[in-house]
Amino acid sequence: MGYYTSLIQRKFKDVVGKRYESVLREYGEFLLSEEEMVVPEIHSILLPLDIFVKEIPPSLYEVLSAYEGARVSLVYITDAQVYSVISEVLSAGAGEEFMRKKEEYGHVLLNQVSGELAAAGIESTQRMFTGHKGEDIEKLASSHDLVALAKSYGSEKTEHYPISPLAIRIAQRLKKPTILF
């Protein structure tokens, strides 16, 4: 280290003391870090839906529209375990009725969200199937660049638990960037 550099460092230390560290901490709370400043290339976004996802906040559409050209895959999964429990405990007819109502609601929700995405200038595809929400989303996520997951996915939010247990578990296991909304 040259004389000039060490002189500046000495003078800086004497004039500023420890104030710079606290200034950096304060700025760190609202400025993006180096890592966060690198905008990831997002071409495909997975957006899981179910009966507990009542509405999508408009701010999510704004965020998704920032990824120009990205396509959103809307996926509505009906829990296969619930279907089999209803069929076994009540009757096969009750199970079919459960599926019919779920699919009916699913189509309405998928069409509604798809319409809202189109209004925000975002292309989307729809898919509906019966399966295991946690595992299937993990599998589907591997072929997408980003996942947008509702905090209420899988069960109702409560005052004490603003994120559903299933949403937490999925978010913890996903390796892809995830937006929790």
Binding site: I8, Q9, K11, F12, K13, V15, V16, Y20
Partner: peptide, 12 residues
């Protein structure tokens, strides 16, 4: 002093 502060930050 202002010079030293800015140059010190830059160096860091």
């Amino acid at each position: 002093s202002a010079n030293v502060v800015v140059l010190g930050i830059a160096e860091r």
